[in-house]
Nucleic acid binder design. Sequence first.
DNA 1: ATCGCACTTGAACGTTGTTCATGACCATGC
DNA 2: GCATGGTCATGAACAACGTTCAAGTGCGAT
Lengths: 201, 201
Amino acid sequence: MSADERRRALRDTLVAEAERMIAAGGLPGLRARELAQAAGCAVGAIYTAFPDLDGVVLAVNLRTLNLFEAALGPPAGRIADAGAAADELVRLGQAYLDFARAHPLRWDALFRHRAPSGQRAPDWYVAEQARLFARIEQPLAVLRPELAETECRLLARSLFSATHGIVALGLDPQRLALPAAVIRDQIEILVRAMAAGLRRP
Amino acid sequence: MSADERRRALRDTLVAEAERMIAAGGLPGLRARELAQAAGCAVGAIYTAFPDLDGVVLAVNLRTLNLFEAALGPPAGRIADAGAAADELVRLGQAYLDFARAHPLRWDALFRHRAPSGQRAPDWYVAEQARLFARIEQPLAVLRPELAETECRLLARSLFSATHGIVALGLDPQRLALPAAVIRDQIEILVRAMAAGLRRP
DNA sequence: ATCGCACTTGAACGTTGTTCATGACCATGC
DNA sequence: GCATGGTCATGAACAACGTTCAAGTGCGAT
C-alpha cells in the first residue's frame, strides 16, 4: 500500500470514528486521544491526515450535509403552480426538522462549529451548501417568477435561515424545547404565511 | 464592609470585567486567570462569587438582554390596525439586527453559550426573555385578534426564531456574511410577507 | 545484508477550568 | 493590648485538553 493510500484509509477511518463520537457526544465529544484510540492510531497520526481537529469536524460536517441531501430524496420535478410551490417549501422545512431530530448532535455540529482562524469555509463545503439551497430556489422561482436570479438566491437563503431559526431554537433544550409536533405546525404556519405573503409583491 | 457586601462587590466587578472580555473576544475570550487579574482578585475568588465560569457568562448574558431591552426603547403604545402591527414587527426585527451588529460578540454569547450540565436556564433568565417576547406578542395580537393567548405566545416565539435565524446566519462571517443593508431588506421582505400571510387565516 | 530515509509514535508542552491545603486577617474575649 | 478562634482569600497544584517533535521503527533500494 502506498503512503497516499494509507493516508486516505486513515482519513476515512478517522472521519467514520469522529462521526460516531460527534453523534454520541456532540462537538465536545470529539477528543483527540479518544479519536486516535478508536481509529487504532497514535494521536500524532491524526495530524498527518488533517491539519487539526477542526479539519476532522469539517469532514464530518460534509458527510452530514450529504446525509441530509440523501434524506431529501431526488429533487422535485416540475412545480405546477404557486400552491404546489408553497407545499414544496413546507415539505422542505419539515424535512429539515425531521433531519435535525433524527441526528440532533451531528446537525448541531454543523452550526456550532467555528473555524478558529476566522477563515471562511472551504470551497467544497460551500458548493455542497449551494446544492441544498438550490432546492429552495426552485419552488421560490415558481412563486415569484419575476425575481432576478440573484434576488431569488438571496431570498432562498433567507427563507432557509428563517426556518433554521425556528428549528434550532425550537429544538434547543435550553431555549424553547418545544415538542416536535408543535415545531412542525409552526413551520407549516409560517412558511405558508411567507409563501402567501410573497406571492403578491 | 460585611462579607456579603464584599461578595456582591466582587460579583459586580467580575461581571463588568467579564462583559468587557466577552465583548472583546467572545466566549473564548473569557479566561479564568485573565478575569481574576482584571478584577484584581485571585482565580479562586471567582468561585466564591459564582459556581463556575458559566455562571459568570449567564450574568453577562442577562446584562446583554437588559441592554437590548433598553435599545428597544419603551414598549409601543396602542397599535391602530394590521398595517401598523406589521410595521411594528418589521421595526422590532430591524432593531434586533441593529443590536446584533452593535454588539456582535456579546450577542453571539447569548446563543452560543450552553450550560454544561444540560439544565435549563434559571428562572430570572427566562423571565427576562419573556418580557422581550411580549414585545412581539403585542402587535401579533392586533394582527390576529382571534388567536388564543397560548397560540399567540407560541407564534411570537416562532416569529422571533425566524428573524433570529435570518440575522444569525446573515451576519455569520463563516456562513452568509451578508452586508447589513441586505439583511435589513430581507427582514423587511420576509417579516412583511409573514404579517401579510398571517392576516388571512 | 546493509544502509538510508520517511513516517509513525507517544511522551512532553502549553493552556484550559477547577480545587483545596495553606496562611493571612479580623473580630472577639480576657 | 494580646491571645485566640474561625472565616475567607490565595495561588500552587491537578486533570484534561489540543498540538508538537525528538526518537525510534520499519520498509525499500542497493
